[in-house]
Every structure is written in C-alpha cells, then in structure tokens.
C-alpha cells in the first residue's frame, strides 16, 4: 500500500465539482501526477497529485471533510 498524503491543511474534495464523479474509483490505474482530489485552503483550490503509480485502493477521508497536512487521503495498491 502506498499512501497519498495531504500536502496542506484544508478541506478535501474527491470530485472536481459537486456534479462530477470522484477523480478515481477503486481499481483505477493511477499514473504519477494523476490528480486524485482537491484541497481547499483559504479559498484556493490546490490539486492533489499521485507521486507514485499504482492501482487505486480507495479514499481514506470523506468528501468535503477537513484534513491536516500529512493525513492519508487515499491509498494505492
């Protein structure tokens, strides 16, 4: 398992917008630099990118939930 960590404190979003599906679903292939979510910090949205390749194993935090820097957002297997 490889964890994808939050680079900043803020609010985590699994989707690009409320109407869209999540960036990744379980079993999806993930390449380096693929966007897996957004962090909203102080009214700015920052993309969270995978630093390693793998297979998406799922989100570890709910959509629109507060996160701290270093929290595990998702895992790759």
């Amino acid at each position: 398992m490889t964890a994808i960590l939050s680079p900043l404190p803020g609010t985590f979003y699994q989707k690009p917008s409320p109407e869209d599906p999540p960036y990744k679903a379980e079993g999806d292939a993930v390449a380096v630099d693929d966007v897996i979510g957004l962090i909203e910090v102080m009214k700015t949205f920052i993309e969270v990118k995978a630093e390693a390749a793998g297979t998406f194993a799922g989100y570890k935090v709910e959509n629109e939930s507060p996160v701290n820097a270093g929290d595990t957002l998702a895992e790759l297997s």
Binding site: L8, P9, G10, T11, E40, K43, P66
Partner: peptide, 9 residues
Amino acid sequence: YQIPPFYDS
C-alpha cells in the same frame, strides 16, 4: 496557534 485553513488568509 494553528491558523485555520478554512477562511481568508
């Protein structure tokens, strides 16, 4: 003090 990330900077 931890500056909250939810509001203006």
